[in-house]
Each structure stands twice: as structure tokens, then as C-alpha cells.
Amino acid sequence: MHRYLSLLALAGALFAGDALAWSAEGHRIVARIAEAGLTPAARAEVDRLLAAEPDPTLAGISTWADELRDTDPVVAKRTAKWHYINFDGRCGFEPPKDCPGNNCVVTQANLMFGVLANRDKDDASRTAALKWVVHLIGDLHQPMHASMRDDKGGNDYQVNLDGEGSNMHRIWDGTIIERRALGAEAYATELLLQPLPDDPTLASDRPTLEWALESCRLVESGDLYPAEGTHVIDEAFLDAQLPLAERRLREAGYRLAMMLNYALARPKNVP
């Protein structure tokens, strides 16, 4: 893992549609789980970098990248493809094919991590990078944002729930978790009671890609969609998806904490 993270610091060279990845609540849940796992040194650096923010917490900035649509449409348009990756019919990564121009969530998560971890960068750049890392690690774990299907991350797969139209991307963004009617803080507190088992991806030289491939394989299994040819879903379908959605939130939160601890509080003699 250390080898991979040090490589990320040097990574400067290396269409899921218009829906967001996780609802605002989902991103805040991931961020609150990560906040609980920060070391004191990493937390102090987060506090310093976010001191000028209206809500100077990871949860407070977790939706910043989506809010650019309203606050800075030009930047939002330029970075729209950073939130997802389209694997072309298979769960395998060929950068020129799957991430042209480095415009995908896997590469941008790596590049932003490199900026955040670089202590020679100015605070404004590192703060923006922190906002991106918090958001993009959440995005990586929303299965519809790393899909091998040709339905634009579920946006083109229309469904009917309780007599109302929706699509599979929107169902995974928020419908599954929001129906529990818990606030982000309460939800994160509940999920923190369920620690993750050993995580083999942390030994990888490329964990962000591993996390995207995890999402892709979940989509590839077909279990995230209703039965083939079916477009009417019900509460039972949502109940069946809930454990996986909550697991992905937990994984995203714990993994984000690990990345931030390394980027913000690693010993100075570690490259």
C-alpha cells in the first residue's frame, strides 16, 4: 500500500449520465465514517485546510464537487467525467480506452491524492484536492459509477416504484438508503458499529482501480438490477439491496480514512 501511495504522489502525468453518485446523504455518511477514523495528526491538518469553509468538516465538503453544477457550471462541465468510469462491456482497465484524457474517477482520484499529499503545494490547491478526494472515493463505491453496461450507469434503465417512474442510477444514488429516514450522522454512527473484515485491496499497488473493479463486478453479477425484462420494483427489492449499499458506504468511509491518514499525516521520511 505504501508503495502505491508514494506512486500516487508522482501521478501527475499518467458516461454515466447526469445523475450524481450517492445522494448528498450518502456522501455525508461516507465522510462521517472517515472522520471517525482519522488520526489526530490527520484531523489537525483537515481542520487547518478547511478552516475557511462554512462547514469545516469532511461531511461539510463531501458534496462540494456535485454542487459545482450550481456554483461554477464551467468547472462542473469540465470535470463531469471525473465522477465515473465506463468499462466497455467488461470489468478490465485499459486507460486509453476506459479513461481517455485521464477523465475518469480512477485516475482523478489518484491525481487529486497526489496533490493533497504533496506538502510543497499551496493550501488552496491542497484544499480543493481534499474536497475531490473525499467526493471521488465515495463515487468509486457507488456501483453504478463504475459499470460495464451500456445503460449510462443505470440512467437509461427505467423502473417503476410505487407507481412512480425512476431509473436504476437514482435508486442506487439514494432511494435504497434514504427510505430508512436516518440522518447522515445517525446512519454513520450505526454503520461504524459494523467494522469491516481485513481488506485485501489495501495491499494493492492500485487500490482505487481495485475499488472501481469491485463496483463493476457487482454490476456484472446482475444482482443489482431487477430480473431481466422487469422494470417494476418494490419494497422487497429495495430491502434486498440495502445490505450491499450499506457495505459500500462502510467500505468507502474506512478506505477514505486510510488514504487521508497517509496523505496528511505520514512521517516526513516516507516518500
Rank of each mutant, 00 (worst) to 15 (best):
T189V: 11
D150H: 05
S147Y: 02
Y187L: 12
A117V: 05
Q158M: 10
D139A: 15
L140S: 11
Y157E: 06
D139S: 15
D123K: 11
D120Q: 13
S204E: 08
R170V: 11
W132Y: 11
A203Q: 14
E190F: 03
K131W: 00
L191H: 02
V134D: 02
E178N: 15
D205W: 03
L191F: 04
P195Q: 12
D198T: 10
V115G: 03
L140I: 13
V133S: 02
T201W: 04
N155Q: 15
G154S: 08
A124D: 14
N155L: 13
H169M: 07
I177A: 07
G174E: 03
Y157G: 00
A129M: 09
V115R: 13
R119A: 03
D199L: 09
S125C: 01
R126L: 03
G114S: 08
A188W: 04
A128W: 08
D123N: 12
R179C: 09
L116N: 06
E190Q: 13
L193Q: 14
I137N: 03
S204Q: 08
N118I: 02
A128V: 14
M144H: 02
M168T: 09
A181M: 11
D173R: 13
S204W: 10
E190K: 14
H145A: 10
T127S: 12
T175Q: 12
L202D: 05
K152Q: 14
A129I: 01
G174H: 04
L161Y: 15
I176V: 15
L161R: 11
M168E: 09
R206E: 12
S125E: 15
L191S: 06
D123G: 04
N155I: 05
W132A: 10
A188F: 07
N118K: 08
S147H: 12
L130N: 09
M168R: 07
P143V: 09
M168P: 06
A117G: 07
P200M: 10
H169A: 15
K131E: 10
D150M: 08
T175F: 01
A128C: 05
W132G: 00
R119M: 01
E190R: 15
L140V: 10
